[in-house]
Simulated assay, not measured.
Amino acid sequence: MSEELSGKVAIVTGGASGIGLAAVRLFATAGASKVIMADVNGATGEALAAEIGDNVVFQETDVSSETAVQALVDRAVNDFGGLHVMFNNAGISNRLFDSFLDDDLQDFRRTMDVNVLGVMLGTQRAARHMAAHGGGSIINTASIGGAHAGFGVMSYRASKAAVLHFSKCAAIDLAQHNIRVNVINPGHIRTKMASWSDTGMSEAGFNQLQSELDEINLSDQPIKRLGTPEDVAEAALYLASDRSRQVTGIVITVDGGVTAGDCVNHVKQIHDAQARAMKL
């Protein structure tokens, strides 16, 4: 068992599923004195926190709420003695359209509120404490969709591009306080958000869709292995630990090599797979 985070208090937003959950589990086993799992899914979060161990607690949090994010940081400081690692991982996608011309932009504001404002609030409120207490590590989750142009989910792509640029700016601004700000760019990682499943889809349809998505995603990925949330969590652990004490303003891309070359247009392939799955 690693002790890389021994004595440290960490917050992980979006911690009740996918990459966030993998990070909570890994941080807990890496010796963190307390990991606060923050998520909007209260029932699931409470159960998972209790399952993982005594050094994990849950707090229901909407990261787009200034009050909620401040309460999250306050809990870390007041109940557990400080805040050393802030992993701003919570994020949502927007609806998938064949073309931007068809996008009604109805979910634009919510996507930006969660993906951009949530990261900015988490960075700022964590940094205000860290600046007065010796520094710390802030890690923000972006996406290859924000770094690599392509079709579809334009609001999501724009939000993640904003996270990338904001994080580098924050790294420069906060370095004087010994606060490191870094970014992780996940690629095709199998999570609920990346499943593209529709409400009402049968189990058989869902399984078929996932199989086809795996094939689509691997088609333009040099390493022919599906990435996992645990792969991303390992990158987060490195950035949270003292191993990266000289590292700030960087982007770690966990994508199996996708952004090393051109990506294909997945949107029509995904829609076709959805349509076939809904017929089962």
Rank of each mutant, 00 (worst) to 15 (best):
E4W: 05
K8H: 05
V12Q: 06
V12M: 04
G15K: 11
S17N: 15
G18D: 02
I19C: 10
A22C: 06
A23R: 07
V24N: 03
L26A: 05
A32Q: 11
K34G: 02
V35L: 15
I36Y: 11
M37V: 12
A38C: 00
G45H: 13
A47T: 11
A47S: 09
A49D: 00
G53F: 08
D54Q: 11
N55L: 04
V57L: 10
E66W: 05
A71F: 10
R75W: 10
A76T: 11
A76M: 12
D79V: 13
D79L: 14
L83V: 06
V85W: 06
F87N: 07
G91I: 01
G91N: 03
I92Y: 06
S93V: 05
L96R: 03
F97E: 02
F97I: 00
F100S: 10
D104E: 05
Q106D: 09
R110M: 13
R110N: 10
T111V: 11
M112T: 09
G118Q: 06
L121F: 13
L121M: 00
Q124N: 15
R128C: 07
M130Q: 07
T141Q: 07
S143F: 01
G146K: 04
A149K: 08
A149G: 12
F151S: 15
V153L: 09
V153P: 03
V153M: 09
Y156A: 02
Y156C: 00
L164R: 13
H165K: 10
A170G: 06
A171S: 15
L174E: 04
I179V: 08
N182I: 05
N185V: 01
P186A: 02
R190Y: 06
R190C: 07
W196V: 00
S202H: 05
G205D: 03
G205H: 09
L209K: 12
S211I: 03
L213E: 05
L213N: 03
E215C: 08
S219T: 05
D220W: 04
P222Y: 10
P229R: 01
E230G: 14
E230M: 12
D231A: 01
D231N: 13
L237N: 02
L239H: 06
S241K: 09
D242P: 09
R243Q: 14
R245S: 11
V247D: 00
I252G: 09
V254N: 10
V258H: 15
V264D: 04
K268C: 00
I270P: 00
D272A: 14
